[in-house]
């Protein structure tokens, strides 16, 4: 308990030169810090173009596979009718990798029980948004995915 505050010096007289020196030192440090921050900033990568992920026969109808496209997992589902669908297989909740459930015919996230339907729409659990949909095209028997 301290009743008084005379422990501190009474309103110190500001010494102009000290303040100027301190100020220019801080300003210089800031100027030097800018390139350092720019240097440390992670690189951005241009969006990837179309990526060939395999031959059509490698995707039997009614099955799903997760393939890596430019460091991101992509869930490729081929319906019984032979139609392809592709989603970025990252749950919109907290980025767990989602999987296709053959029994329940839906896309599920094991982390927090998020559920998406086969259109990628978030239908149950915590996911706030639908999955990101990718375009799938067939070229000369090869399956090609690209950002929509």
């Amino acid at each position: 308990m301290q009743p008084e505050a005379p422990q501190l010096a009474p309103a110190p007289r500001r010494d102009f030169l000290s303040v100027a020196a301190g100020g220019s030192a801080v300003a210089f440090a800031a100027a030097a810090g800018y390139p350092v921050l720019r240097y440390m900033e992670p690189r951005t990568r241009p969006p990837s173009g179309p990526t060939t992920i395999g031959r059509q026969e490698e995707f039997p109808p009614g099955a799903a596979r997760i393939v890596a496209v430019e460091d991101r997992p992509v869930l490729v589902i081929r319906g019984e009718d032979g139609k392809f669908q592709a989603f970025v297989a990252l749950c919109t909740h907290l980025q767990c990798v989602v999987g296709y459930s053959k029994e329940r015919k839906q896309i599920e996230c094991g982390c927090h029980r998020g559920v998406y339907n086969l259109e990628g729409l978030n239908v149950a659990g915590p996911p706030p948004r639908p999955l990101e949909v990718l375009d799938v095209a067939l070229r000369d028997g090869m399956v090609v995915v690209s950002e929509a």
């Binding site: 390139p35 350092v36 720019r38 240097y39 900033e41 690189r43």
Partner: peptide, 9 residues
């Protein structure tokens, strides 16, 4: 050549 200010550093 690629990182901003990398050459400087």
């Amino acid at each position: 050549g690629e990182i901003p200010y990398g050459n400087l550093i």
